[in-house]
């Protein structure tokens, strides 16, 4: 029971990162391998604002979100859109976007290494305990989880119940057809990429309240986010949330029952199961 609750609390932050990525990949069709660095950058921003400006991390989200939006919009329009235009087919765009986002990954990581060095960072926010069903959990983890639920919920309502959200989903289904019904595909793609970046950054802020982080841990989170996205089905927000919770629980179980050093192995174990049995994702339909 303790494993499940800890796992779900961890899964909340994973869900945000994966939802961000699944929107970027599903709509803008860019496999953003720098997503982990967006997350870590946001951790550092929150840390810096909390320590030097005394800004509450939860409120900090409202400052970080617009910044992440602008930055990701710029990355898409300046760096990635030219690749989308030049690609002759899907496979070429895949290779190009993988390489380009690797470039962004190392650039961001390098900048953070230069700025903060390679040490681990953490700060103390709401680090009192709260008891659920007889076991104590960090209050910061619970608050982060609730905030994650709120953000994902808002996003879901936006995508399914608003006009602009519908056009985002239309581009996800078929960019060519969306263009025919007067949707500005490039703009919606840039918007979706930026929105995905915001969600990921919010995930980073929440994660930083209870997690020790360093400049070079981004890749591990990218890995996990990618696997969650594939598990949930590309572009599927609900799928990503459920897959994130599964991964959170699986990791916590492995760490508690076997060895904390084997979390990647747990992730891979899930990944291999998915590859072998449901490569279209947990809820995806067979595409034959």
């Amino acid at each position: 029971m303790e494993i499940i609750i800890t796992g779900i609390l961890l899964g909340g932050a994973y869900a945000l990162i994966a939802v961000g990525l699944t929107i970027q990949y599903g709509v803008a069709r860019i496999m953003n391998l720098a997503t982990g660095e967006t997350l870590v950058a946001s951790c550092f921003c929150t840390f810096w604002m909390f320590n030097s400006l005394k800004i509450n991390p939860i409120l900090g989200i409202f400052l970080i979100a617009p910044a992440a939006f602008i930055l990701n919009w710029a990355i898409y329009s300046l760096l990635l859109l030219p690749l989308v235009r030049r690609a002759k087919n899907k496979a070429m765009l895949e290779v190009d976007s993988i390489l380009a986002t690797f470039g962004i990954l190392f650039l961001l990581e390098g900048l953070m290494l230069v700025g903060f060095g390679g040490e681990y960072f953490s700060y103390s926010f709401l680090s009192t305990s709260y008891t659920i069903a007889g076991t104590a959990y960090g209050l910061n983890r619970i608050v982060a989880f609730l905030a994650a639920v709120l953000i994902t919920g808002t996003l879901y309502v936006f995508l399914t119940h608003t006009r602009y959200g519908t056009s985002v989903r239309a581009v996800a289904v078929d960019p060519a057809a969306a263009g025919l019904v007067a949707i500005n595909v490039d703009r919606v793609s840039a918007f979706a990429f930026a929105l995905g970046g915001v969600v990921t950054a919010a995930g980073g802020t929440l994660l930083s309240t209870f997690y020790t982080f360093n400049a070079s841990m981004g890749v591990v989170f990218t890995m996990k986010a990618l696997i969650i996205v594939i598990m949930g089905g590309v572009g599927d927000v609900r799928g990503a949330v459920i897959a994130a919770l599964i991964l959170g629980i699986a990791e916590t179980a492995t760490a508690t029952l076997i060895d904390p050093g084997l979390t990647i192995a747990a992730t891979y174990f899930l990944f291999i199961l998915i590859l072998l049995f449901r490569p279209q994702g947990l809820f995806g339909r067979q595409t034959t």
């Binding site: 962004i104 190392f106 990581e109 390098g110 900048l111 290494l113 230069v114």
Partner: peptide, 8 residues
């Protein structure tokens, strides 16, 4: 510390 930037 700058080798990552070079890779990027």
């Amino acid at each position: 510390n700058h080798s990552s930037i070079l890779l990027g």
